[in-house]
Amino acid sequence: MVAYALSIMAAVGAVALTALVFRRVKTAGEDRDPNGPSAAHAGAMLSAMFLLVFAIAIIVPWTTADAARLNTHTESQATVDAYWAASGLPGSAPEEVRRSLRDYVAFVVREEWPVMAEGKMHPVGAERIDDLRGRVNALQTGDDEEEDAKATVLEHMSAISTARAQRTADAAASPPEGLLFLTILTGVLVIVFPFLAGARPRGLAILPLVATAALLGFGTYLSWDISRAFAGPLAVGPEAFQGALDEFTRIAGGM
Rank of each mutant, 00 (worst) to 15 (best):
104 Y>S: 09
213 A>C: 10
241 F>T: 14
145 E>F: 06
230 F>L: 06
44 A>Y: 10
36 G>W: 03
24 R>Q: 10
194 P>K: 02
147 E>N: 03
5 A>R: 05
211 A>S: 03
159 A>I: 00
31 D>G: 04
198 G>T: 10
51 L>T: 14
199 A>M: 10
117 A>R: 12
103 D>F: 07
129 I>Y: 11
38 S>A: 12
9 M>H: 02
208 P>I: 04
154 L>T: 05
84 W>S: 09
247 E>R: 15
189 L>P: 00
199 A>Y: 05
223 S>M: 01
155 E>A: 05
115 V>I: 15
205 A>T: 12
246 D>N: 14
14 A>Y: 11
26 K>M: 04
166 Q>Y: 02
150 K>P: 01
82 A>P: 07
193 F>D: 07
200 R>L: 06
42 A>Y: 11
245 L>A: 03
246 D>S: 15
64 T>Y: 00
46 L>R: 02
7 S>K: 10
34 P>Q: 06
235 A>Q: 03
134 G>Y: 09
242 Q>F: 08
139 L>P: 08
138 A>D: 14
6 L>F: 01
134 G>C: 00
129 I>G: 10
31 D>K: 06
30 E>F: 12
108 V>Q: 07
56 I>T: 10
17 L>P: 00
195 F>N: 11
11 A>E: 07
85 A>R: 07
252 A>D: 14
229 A>Q: 03
27 T>H: 08
49 M>G: 13
245 L>V: 14
213 A>N: 07
133 R>N: 15
104 Y>F: 12
164 R>L: 07
124 V>M: 15
73 H>C: 01
134 G>K: 14
198 G>K: 06
213 A>W: 03
46 L>V: 13
67 A>P: 03
204 L>G: 02
51 L>I: 14
193 F>A: 14
87 S>I: 12
36 G>P: 01
43 G>R: 08
139 L>W: 01
218 F>D: 00
254 G>H: 06
33 D>I: 13
193 F>V: 13
103 D>I: 12
177 E>T: 14
76 S>H: 08
156 H>K: 13
156 H>W: 10
228 R>Q: 12
141 T>F: 04
134 G>A: 15
16 A>W: 11
196 L>H: 11
27 T>W: 12
44 A>F: 15
79 T>N: 07
174 S>P: 00
225 D>Y: 05
249 T>S: 13
63 T>S: 15
20 L>M: 08
199 A>H: 04
224 W>T: 11
55 A>S: 14
101 L>A: 09
228 R>I: 06
147 E>Y: 00
83 Y>W: 11
45 M>N: 13
75 E>N: 12
236 V>W: 07
208 P>R: 00
230 F>P: 04
48 A>V: 15
102 R>E: 09
181 F>D: 01
168 T>H: 00
249 T>C: 01
164 R>W: 09
177 E>H: 04
73 H>Q: 11
236 V>D: 05
199 A>L: 06
10 A>Q: 06
195 F>Y: 15
176 P>C: 03
181 F>R: 02
37 P>F: 06
254 G>R: 08
206 I>Y: 04
120 K>R: 14
229 A>E: 01
138 A>E: 11
89 L>G: 04
129 I>A: 14
163 A>K: 07
